[in-house]
Every structure is written in C-alpha cells, then in structure tokens.
Design a protein around this nucleic acid. Sequence first.
DNA 1: GTCTATACGAAGATAGAC
DNA 2: GTCTATCTTCGTATAGAC
Lengths: 187, 187
Amino acid sequence: MPAHGETRRRMLDAAVAVMREKGASGVTIDEVLARSGAPRGSVYHHFPGGRQALIRETLDYAGESYSGMLERAAARGPDAVVTRLVEFWTRVLLDSDYRAGCPVVATAVRPPDGNEVIGRRAAEIFAGWQLAVAGAFTRAGVPGRQSATAATTLLAALDGAVSLCRTTRSLAPLNDVAAVLPRLVTL
Amino acid sequence: MPAHGETRRRMLDAAVAVMREKGASGVTIDEVLARSGAPRGSVYHHFPGGRQALIRETLDYAGESYSGMLERAAARGPDAVVTRLVEFWTRVLLDSDYRAGCPVVATAVRPPDGNEVIGRRAAEIFAGWQLAVAGAFTRAGVPGRQSATAATTLLAALDGAVSLCRTTRSLAPLNDVAAVLPRLVTL
DNA sequence: GTCTATACGAAGATAGAC
DNA sequence: GTCTATCTTCGTATAGAC
C-alpha cells in the first residue's frame, strides 16, 4: 500500500541511477522497473508521457538536487565548492563501484536520439551551475571576466576527473585534480 | 571496384565517428552501414565476429591513431601536448558540430552492456596515454611523483573541457582550460 | 564480395481485465 | 492502481542466391 508518490519516487531514484551510468539514452523502462521493483502497470500511470516524460522528470529531479548542494557550497566560497564536490563524487563513485557519473552532463553531451530538447534542458541546468560557481569566485575577489573562466575550468577539471576515475577504477584522478585545482584557478 | 580493405576502412571510419558521438554501446551495425554506405553483406565478411568484433577493431583503430599523435607531441614537451591536443579537439568539435568526443574514454567510462572486456581494453589504451604525457613532464624537469599527477590533471581537464564544449556548443571551455594548464609545469 | 529474405530478441506503447 | 497480453519497431544474425 504505497502512499502518495512512493512508487513514483522509487522509479525516479532508479532512473537517476541508470542515467548516471548510461546517460539519458540508456534509461529504458525495463531497467527502471527492474531496479525499482515497480509494477509494469505503474509506468504510464505515473508518467503518462511514457519514456520521454520519465527521462525529462528524471533529469529535473537530479538537476535540482545537485543545484541545491552547489549553491549552498558556493555561498561559502570557491574552496568550499571544491571540497564539497570532491566529497560528493567520492561517495558516488564508491557507492556505484566506479560506474556512475553526472546525469546532467551525460544527457547534455549525448541526448537521446530523437530528442534534442532534453539536451538543451540539460545544458540550461548546467549553465546554472556554472553561474553559481562563478558567483563564488566573484565574491572571493576575482574580477568578473576571470570568474567565469575559473568556474568553467573548475567544473571541467572535476568532470574530467570523474570520467578518469571511472576509467581507472580509482579515486586518484579526483584527488590529483583537487590538489592542483586551487593553483590552477587562482591568480 | 574497391581495392583491398577500402570498404572495411570506410566502415571503420564511420564506426569511429559513431563511437565518438554515442560511445561503444551506440555503435550499431545499421548506423555504421548508413554512414559508410557499405553494403549489408560486407558486415560479416569483413568482421566475422559481428558487432562485437567491429567495436573492438574500431576501438583499437581509434586508439592507435591518437596514441601516435600524443607520443609525437609528448616528445616535444608538455606545452606541445596542450597545443597539439587543443588544436586536434578544436577541429573534431567543429567538424562534428559539437557532437564528438573521445571514443576511448567514452568506451572505458561506459562499456557495452554484456562486454566489460572492451572496457578494460579501453582503460589500457588510456593508461598508455597517461604514461606518455607523464614522460613529457618528467623530461621537462618535474619530479617523478608529480609528473603522474600533472599528466592526470592535464588529461582530465582537457577531457572535461571537451564535454563542456559539447554541452555549451562552444569552444570557450577548451580555451579557458588551455589558458591555465601551462601552470602545471611550474608546480 | 555483395544482395535479399528471414529468424529472433529487446524495448516502447497500447488495450483490456481485475 | 496494477497486471497481462499484444502490436510494432528496431537491431543482430544467418542462410542462400547471384
């Protein structure tokens, strides 16, 4: 007897996990059902738009959670962003046995075949993150133009580090990058 | 009247392009045929092992070409590596309308579902790149331990930058990252 | 070496029973 | 809200003609 959106919630959590591992185009109804244990009849009940609707809601669901974390860290400055993100990704990588990455970047980089709209939506979400991090640099005294550059470099290096952690099945790339990042983005 | 392996070669080129955009799991026989214009009957003629064989040969084919470029650049030092890779990725991104990335990293990060072997093969290829770049740092006077860290950071930052270029449909992330990367040598 | 036809399986989507 | 067909599409693979 699931309460309000409990099945729905479980499906979204499962879909986020799949999207982390395989991107939006890897989110299949069958796998979400298998991982969530939800009944097949629930799919078109909770997501009348079918697979595309499920993917869209999964993307927003994942994006909002990450945005919240990033903005809270950004309020405490650029160093806090690095610290918090390294902490977060360490946990994600270990919990997934080095299989999970960022669902939003994965979706922006490679949208599902007949659906560029979802790719643009992912790009918008990412742009918000870039803005939040740039704000942290600005408040830390970095001139406006260079704040954007520093934010881009920080996010690029961390995203690449996560990819390399998945590739090497090790946390070393993340730690290597984190150790050097303060010098790369400081004047 | 195709000579020796001309059809085969065209199929491999097409497969590399698909692998750049969608990773190994996105390499389907149908799409390779469509892009290469090769006849359907050629598939099992040139690749008796079917799709898995095609993927494996595509990975090696792409990996060797990149390894060659990287080693030639590494022989000229860390700055030459950055310059050469930025040049290379600028062209790849523009030619593909920001759809293409690195086929080897894509395959290592997310191997096709029933085939972890290909993922390990991709990881090995990548490890060779890391070694080549670390050698360049060592020869430039960076102490051994830090050469590995610098190489990892360089490759991570560039890979992340390419992802962000695809996300933002712009070359800015690549140029932003390239501007600060030379500081790695002076650490 | 190349082409057509076909078998087979996976996955999305819909309809109808409970 | 949930479950069970069923239809369709797509992709892999094989067989057999040319």
